Simulated assay, not measured.
Amino acid sequence: MNNTALIVVDMVKDFTDPEGLVFYPQNREILPNIKRVLDECRKHDILVIFMQHSYRAGKFDKNLVNMRSNCIEGTGGDAIDPMLEVNSEKDYVIKKRRYSGFFGTDLDMVLRENNIKNVIIVGTKTNCCIRATVTDAYYLDYNPIVVSDCVATNDEVVNQVHLTDIRKYLGKVVTSQELFDLMDKGGLA
């Protein structure tokens, strides 16, 4: 399954920690599921990439004009949640400042350098960062696979609407158990 990567989107402390600046309880609830998917992907030698929402301290960013300040470098708010251990020798951590993990980053280059075709996507927020990353993955000819019990936003109806659209137009939507079954049967090759 060396043509598959796991992309963990924005599971940083400002989103996942109850003391975080833009915390939603749903993000905390999906962390154990993401941890299981992360562990299973590592067992199957799947490339792991953490997208880290991070704004530069003291620098202007258009995104912060209309939203609450969050994920600022040096505050700890942009740190990957400690439940999701980063293997510094194998995993990639890619900073981003926009919804899509592809926009303004080298994510596409990292995927192409590693001959990736399938991207398993987990994290937050389904209606913003997940949706934008899936859309760009689709446009760049990757096969997006969203794990439904490993994504969240602050409204379950909104979450389901976006998962329905992703399933219908952009890629696969599976549960973590369905993903594990695909891995065990070699269905991601």
Rank of each mutant, 00 (worst) to 15 (best):
N33Y: 14
T126A: 14
D78T: 00
T75G: 02
G123I: 06
F15H: 09
E178Y: 06
K43W: 09
V93M: 10
K96M: 08
T133H: 14
S69F: 04
A57R: 06
G74T: 02
S100L: 08
T16C: 09
D108H: 15
T126E: 14
Q26T: 13
N87T: 02
D149G: 02
D14C: 01
S54N: 05
I145G: 04
R97H: 06
I34C: 05
V147G: 08
V86P: 07
G58M: 02
N66Y: 09
E89G: 04
K185V: 07
I121Y: 12
V173Q: 06
R42Y: 15
M1V: 01
I80G: 10
S176W: 11
T135P: 00
I49T: 11
D106C: 10
R28C: 09
F23Q: 01
S100R: 11
E19R: 13
T164Y: 12
S176A: 15
S69H: 04
E178K: 10
D155R: 08
Y139M: 14
C41H: 15
A5D: 00
G123R: 10
L170W: 14
E40L: 12
E85W: 05
A5F: 05
I49A: 09
D181S: 13
T164M: 09
E73D: 02
K117H: 14
V161Y: 11
V146A: 07
Y142T: 02
M51E: 08
V9M: 02
V9K: 06
I166R: 04
L64V: 01
F50W: 14
K90F: 03
C150H: 06
I166P: 06
D91Q: 05
F50D: 06
K59E: 13
T153L: 12
K90P: 00
N66L: 04
T16Q: 07
N118G: 08
K90V: 00
P82N: 02
S88K: 08
F180S: 12
P18K: 04
Y99Q: 10
I34D: 05
D61V: 01
N118F: 11
I130K: 14
L182D: 15
E29R: 15
V8K: 01
F180T: 12
M183H: 07
V174P: 09
V134I: 03
C71R: 01
R56T: 10
D14A: 03
G76L: 00
L188D: 04
A152G: 01
N115P: 06
V161K: 13
V65P: 05
L111N: 09
I46M: 08
T4D: 01
D106Q: 13
A189M: 11
T124N: 14
G171N: 05
V9A: 05
P25M: 04
M1T: 00
N143R: 02
L188N: 05
V37A: 12
L84T: 01
S88G: 00
R97F: 00
Y24N: 11
T16V: 06
E19L: 12
V173S: 07
K43Q: 15
C128T: 13
V147T: 05
A57W: 05
R56Q: 13
V122A: 11
V161H: 12
V110D: 07
S88E: 10
Y169N: 09
L6S: 01
I7C: 05
T124G: 13
M83L: 07
L179Y: 13
F103Q: 12
A79G: 04
H162I: 01
E113R: 14
